[in-house]
Write a protein that binds this DNA or RNA. Structure first.
Length: 490
RNA sequence: CGGGGUGUAGCGUAGCCCGGUAUCGCGCCACAUUUGGGAUGUGGAGGUCGUAGGUUCGAAUCCUGCCACCCCGACCA
């Protein structure tokens, strides 16, 4: 890494880019704004998928798949929804190409679609159009469906993982008989995300609600989890929306209640994306590269043999075979890096760059002494330990690393969450310290917008654990009932 | 879409002002010596200098158009 984690904010962007590319996670593609997720990066995403998907199933959801293309007319049915996405949609207008006679392939103007198709930026509309056919009675409810998919948002400026024109995500879309049930679902899924972020990604998050200004287009309430990155900027890591009856009304989805009345269905939608990869990278990495929490790492333990002769290698192999079997028995994933094309020092550096939590180095000297060199990625410390009982020791170490990474991130967030009581103080903290700024706000969109214009900071959320108290808005001096969390954000 | 910048080998670059077919590093290939923190030596491969045109005996270099990408803003998970 050329730039340190503590370098100036302007350098952080470069540092982040370098890291993503050097750690072999992703790269820019030939298509502007789109990225190629490389095998190692994708393996991490697959771990995220597996763990989240399991939680979705445990909470009663099923996976399904809906079309990539959405007829424009569907899109226009929910007014605030279309308004929210209109400026960033990729649109399919034709379905055929032809040779122009000069060796050039051109769009065949005769093959113009009668109705343009929108490449989904999110699937609410196509899904609610579908749900209309699925729902007649209260007996058909709830519908608890999730989709793993790609979506396209034609962003003007992109960054690897954090904002790309196409990204991978999951979107849950649920239908319920009552508002209470839909809200409970919305809150439950927010907690699933928060738990995943904290216990798997080891990224502490603030659970909160969005202000009207930041709310999802078409939602009555948007819940979110907000994480803090090491450069002091916030990152929205997941959202869960209570959609009320907006989409049910737009797509005329009614059901007959127990009482025999026709009622509109209540809805929620929730999603997390490959942006979580960005959160993971920016929350934990150091100047040596990635730091992956053990629960997420595709490779939890890397074993590097050190040898001169074939005989020494064979000796080490024998030991590694047994260790691998033991670790696999404990469900620990291992990579035995016995490539003879690279030297040990190179391998050490490479696996550190890729964030593998634990490294075992073993050579002829160790084989004589009955030891190995055990190194942990998070603290960079290494020690020589006995081969006896090594698997158990590694198992404990992985757990310790998981905890340590989380505690470190939590400590950083605590140190970078500042309560302020005046606008001067507010600006000073944003300018010189960064991080979350907790303060009173008068609750108006105008104030929020003016603060954003002047400082670039936005209200990340109204924390769910915020208490009701008397206060005055730091900007207007008007009365306020509770504090909100401001920050500059990605 | 506004403001700024850059295009030379897979990557990073020198050369451009002052025209003579391209420098250096990393990486890659071969061989040897190496292997407990990113090895060393020797040899080698790899280039329509973004693109189209112009000026010139001759263009990476000067002129004109175009294209692409990056950074900063507006937009946004």
């Amino acid at each position: 890494m050329s730039k340190g984690i503590t370098s100036r904010a302007e350098d952080y962007s470069q540092w982040y880019n370098d890291l993503v590319i050097k750690a072999d996670l992703a790269e820019y593609s030939a298509v502007r704004g789109c990225m190629v997720i490389k095998p190692y990066g994708y393996a991490i995403w697959e771990r995220m998928q597996a763990i989240l998907d399991k939680r979705f199933k445990e909470t009663g959801h099923s996976n399904a798949y809906f079309p990539l293309f959405i007829p424009k007319s569907f899109f226009s049915k929910e007014a605030s929804h279309v308004e929210g996405f209109a400026t960033e949609c990729a649109v399919v207008t034709h379905y055929r190409l032809k040779n122009d006679g000069h060796g050039q392939i051109v769009v065949d103007e005769e093959a113009k679609l009668e109705e343009e198709l929108i490449v989904r930026p999110t699937s609410e509309t196509i899904i609610w159009n579908t749900y209309k056919g699925w729902i007649e009675s209260y007996r058909d409810l709830p519908i608890l469906v999730n989709q793993w998919a790609n979506v396209v948002r034609w962003e003007m400026r992109t960054r690897l993982f954090l904002r790309t024109a196409e990204f991978l995500w999951q979107e849950g879309h649920t239908a319920h008989a009552t508002a209470e049930e839909a809200i409970a679902e919305t809150e439950q899924m927010l907690e699933v995300y928060a738990d995943f972020a904290e216990n798997t990604l080891a990224v502490p998050v603030v659970r909160g609600r969005k202000t009207e200004n930041e709310r999802f287009a078409g939602a009555l309430e948007t819940y979110c989890i907000e994480a803090l990155m090491q450069d002091g900027k916030a990152l929205q890591a997941g959202t869960s929306h209570f959609l009320g009856q907006n989409f049910a009304k737009a797509f005329d989805v009614k059901f007959t209640s127990k009482e025999g009345k026709q009622e509109y269905v209540w809805a929620s939608s929730w999603g997390v994306s490959t942006r979580l990869m960005g959160a993971l990278i920016m929350a934990h990495s150091d100047d040596q590269g990635l730091v992956l929490p053990p629960k997420l790492a595709p490779i939890q333990v890397v074993i590097v043999p050190i040898y001169r002769t074939e005989e020494e290698k064979a000796n080490v192999d024998g030991f590694v075979d047994k260790l691998q079997a033991e670790l696999k028995g404990k469900g620990i994933s291992i990579k035995y890096d016995d490539r003879d094309t690279q030297r040990p020092g190179f391998k050490f550096a490479e696996w550190e760059l890729k964030g593998v939590p634990v490294r075992v180095a073993v050579g002829a000297r160790d084989m004589q002494n009955g030891t190995v060199e055990l190194a942990r990625r998070d603290t960079q410390r290494k020690e020589t330990v006995a081969q006896e009982g090594l698997a158990g020791r590694i198992e404990g170490l992985l757990e310790e690393i998981q905890q340590n990474i989380y505690q470190k991130a939590l400590g950083f967030r605590s140190a970078h969450t500042t309560e302020v009581h005046s606008y001067e103080e507010f600006k000073d903290v944003l300018e010189n310290k960064g991080g979350f700024v907790s303060c009173h706000w008068d609750g108006t969109v105008e104030t929020e917008k003016r603060v954003k214009e002047e400082t670039k900071a936005t209200i990340r959320c109204i924390p769910l654990d915020s208490v009701e108290e008397e206060g005055t808005c730091i900007f207007t001096g008007k009365p306020s009932k509770r504090k909100v969390l401001f920050a500059k954000a990605y």
